[in-house]
């Protein structure tokens, strides 16, 4: 019985190892190419979108050979993660409120949750006249300058097709 207990334990672990050896990973980047070989500059055989579940077939240094629904190819390991990425990008401002310079904000739900982790805005009085006060207007102006996804893709294509030289 004594020897058997050990054998059973080892067997269970062995089976566990085999069962879990193949790992599913998720694409974390918004868009990433799939290359035919583990080298940039080789042929691009497909493009994966964020959140796609892939099966890792093989790893080679910083590269992983993955299989998605229909395509198979190499991606940098960096773009893969063990968990499905969050659904939506995090909003930079709590709620839809703007950062009017004279508003003294209450803690919102988002920041209130942050309080448990040590960051909290309630009771913080922005010293608006101080040189250290954030220039929210400039930040807002910057945040309005967003680029459309199509525009970014076209911009990237122009480079990759050699039309930017």
């Amino acid at each position: 019985m004594f020897k058997n207990a050990g054998l059973v334990a080892l067997g269970v672990m062995g089976l566990g190892l085999v069962a879990w050896a193949g790992g599913q990973q998720y694409v974390q980047s918004r868009k990433v190419n799939l290359w035919v070989a583990p080298r940039f500059g080789t042929q691009v055989v497909g493009r994966l979108e964020r959140g796609v579940a892939v099966e890792v077939m093989e790893e080679n240094g910083r590269w992983a050979r993955v299989r998605a629904a229909r395509v198979e190819g190499w991606v940098p390991r960096m773009v893969l993660g063990p968990r499905a990425p969050a659904e939506r990008p995090a909003e930079p401002v709590e709620g839809a409120g703007s950062w009017a310079p004279d508003a003294r904000r209450r803690a919102s739900a988002v920041v209130g949750a942050g309080a448990t982790r040590g960051v909290r805005s309630s009771g913080v009085r922005e010293r608006l006249n101080s040189a250290d006060a954030p220039d929210y207007r400039a930040v807002e102006e910057w945040e309005r300058q967003s680029a459309e996804p199509d525009e970014v893709e076209a911009f990237q294509r122009e480079l990759q097709e050699g039309r930017a030289e």
Partner: peptide, 8 residues
């Protein structure tokens, strides 16, 4: 670690 979720 054969994956970030499993180690032996």
């Amino acid at each position: 670690y054969w994956s970030p979720s499993w180690a032996v």
